[in-house]
Design a binder for these strands. Structure first.
Length: 505
RNA sequence: UCCUCCUUAGCUCAGUUGGUUAGAGCGUCGGACUGUUAAUCCGCAGGUCCUAGGUUCAAGUCCUAGAGGAGGAGCCA
């Protein structure tokens, strides 16, 4: 049995393959079946001249998502997505499929999410999940090559590691327990045992967030390195991100093409050095006081707004023009074509209008940004708009960072944390930093954050018995997949997303 | 938790100032066509206009409440 991805090795050979029919087109003596088998997609042609009447009848009755076993000859055809098609000689129906709900027309997001278990079969989702898989592979390969030990942290935890965010509560026999929001503290313990470690597991945040960047359940990679300071940490982050992006570019060309991802944006990421901004510098950029490549952030946004408004006008004009043509009376095929174009334009206008209405708010919030605050989504967008590679922001006011973040020796108001902001508004993909080693400072921080001291006794032991400088970070897998794939929403990047309002399927 | 918008056929959506029998495309089903790429063309079927209440001679359309959804803010990876 040959998989579609291996067709290239069987040119002009007769082979057997099996899969699902995602679409069927027909003309008088020809049936075009699009077969998928998880390894790829391929067009299979059944010609009346080549097969018995029985086989042709089976082919002409095949419905979307019926499963079949096919025998046929592999033929090269440049027009096809995989470069090859199958000239079928025999068909065996394995399983029928009646009234498959997801058609080849556009669907709304709610309907698709309700049918997520079937939506996963479609091309776009296949491409995204393949890239997710490759990213996971690249992440593991990178850390293994760098000599890291993979050691996982527990999911049931007795306390909040970072205090502020909301946790999912649970029961652990008779004890109250929470689902982990990070494995960070356990990671530190494991780094003291193994040197350099990384965890890779699910994390849970009960934030009632309804944005394209949030999930309630997501996967995080958290490396932790003994004897690392924050500069070494940032070097590692940059090397790491470059490695995984390069790996996906080299191995997922077909998938990126299917997603219409503009891969030129990734070329810089591999070659260019990521800008490293202190929090102070980032604030100056947000407030429009610091020029980047001779440009002021607020002016760039104002210019964006002008461009967007211009684009909206252009789209509106095109719609009016096309509607006139339709009203004038045209053939059905032409009308459908024009109508589709109008629908696309209307959709674009809708998205552009949302953006246009957001930009003035961003400008206002950027201009009024108060030093000492954490960045909001809009502030991140303002910063990343100025660069075409991920941006690192470090040396944050210590008040807005977690209790375990190390204070800067030269300026105790600052904590040695680092956030990495992805380009194109995909937000913070990495958060990390150097960890506090001063036991007394940790004790006062834990009190300050109103955290239960009893639950942190084991953690404080790490500072009592051979404490060393150490650092680490966390990478959000889904945000990274979303950025690499260029998906509109993070919920497409995980097979069965869990977010506020979505528990099934 | 707050703000804005949405809910009409299996799906995606039109539906004018409140006015006759509720509209299209896609999908399904039937038919035509021997190279289609969301194929195309012809035809049939398909409706609790989200729910409850109200205003009115008359409500898909207006008002009130509720439910569900989308986007954004906050919070964060």
């Amino acid at each position: 049995m040959i998989q579609i991805k291996d067709f290239k090795n069987y040119e002009e050979k007769v082979i057997e393959t099996q899969g699902w029919v995602t679409n069927r087109r027909s003309s008088k003596g020809l049936e075009f079946l699009i077969l998928r088998d998880g390894s790829g997609f391929a067009q299979c042609i059944v010609s009346k001249d080549d097969v018995s009447d029985d086989v042709f009848n089976v082919a002409s009755k095949l419905t979307q998502e019926s499963s079949v076993k096919l025998k046929g000859k592999v033929v090269k055809d440049e027009k096809q997505i995989g470069g090859y098609e199958l000239h079928v000689s025999e068909i065996k129906l394995i399983g029928t499929s009646v009234d498959y709900p997801i058609t080849n027309k556009e669907h709304g997001i709610e309907f698709l999410m309700d049918n997520r278990h079937l939506w996963l079969r479609s091309k776009r989702q296949w491409a995204v999940l393949k890239i997710r898989n490759r990213l996971i592979y690249a992440i593991n390969t990178f850390f293994q090559k760098e000599g890291f030990v993979q050691t996982d942290s527990p999911i049931f935890t007795p306390n909040a590691a970072e205090g502020s965010t909301t946790l999912f509560s649970s029961k652990f026999y008779d004890d109250d327990a929470y689902l982990a929001q990070t494995g960070q503290l356990y990671g530190e313990a494991m780094a003291m045992a193994m040197g350099k470690i990384y965890t890779f597991g699910p994390t849970f945040r009960a934030e009632k967030s309804k944005t394209r960047r949030h999930l309630s359940e997501f996967w995080m990679i958290e490396p932790e390195m003994a004897f690392y300071d924050n500069d070494m940490n940032m070097d590692l982050i940059e090397k790491f991100i470059k490695y995984i992006v390069k790996d996906v570019l080299e191995n997922c060309e077909t998938q990126l093409e299917m997603l219409n991802r503009d891969i030129t944006v990734f070329k810089n990421i591999i070659s260019e050095k990521f800008p490293r901004l202190t929090y102070d510098e980032a604030v100056e950029i947000i407030k429009g006081k610091k020029k980047i490549n001779g440009k002021i952030s607020i002016e760039v946004l104002e210019n964006d707004l002008v461009q967007i408004k211009k684009k909206i006008e252009e789209n509106k004009n095109e719609i009016t023009e096309k509607e006139k043509i339709i009203a004038g009376g045209v053939k059905k095929g032409k009308r459908n074509f024009l109508q589709n174009r109008i629908d696309t334009l209307k959709n674009d206008i809708h998205k552009l209008e949302i953006k246009a209405s957001n930009i003035p708010k961003w400008i206002e919030s950027a201009a009024n940004f108060e030093y000492g605050n954490d960045f909001g989504g809009s502030d991140e967008t303002v910063i990343t708009r100025m660069f075409d590679v991920p941006v690192m922001v470090y040396n944050w006011p210590h008040q807005i960072k977690a209790f375990y973040m190390k204070r800067d020796d030269e300026n105790p108001e600052l904590a040695k944390g680092v956030d990495v902001l992805a380009p194109e508004g995909y937000g913070e993909i990495v958060g990390g930093g150097e960890r506090e080693t001063d036991l007394n400072l940790l004790l006062s921080k834990i009190e300050e954050h109103n955290l239960p001291m009893k639950e942190f006794e084991w953690y404080l032991d790490l500072r009592k018995y051979g404490s060393v400088p150490h650092a680490g970070f966390g990478l959000g897998l889904e945000r990274t997949v979303a950025w690499v794939c260029g998906t509109q929403h993070i919920r497409e990047t995980i097979p069965f997303p869990r977010y506020y309002g979505r528990l099934r399927p």
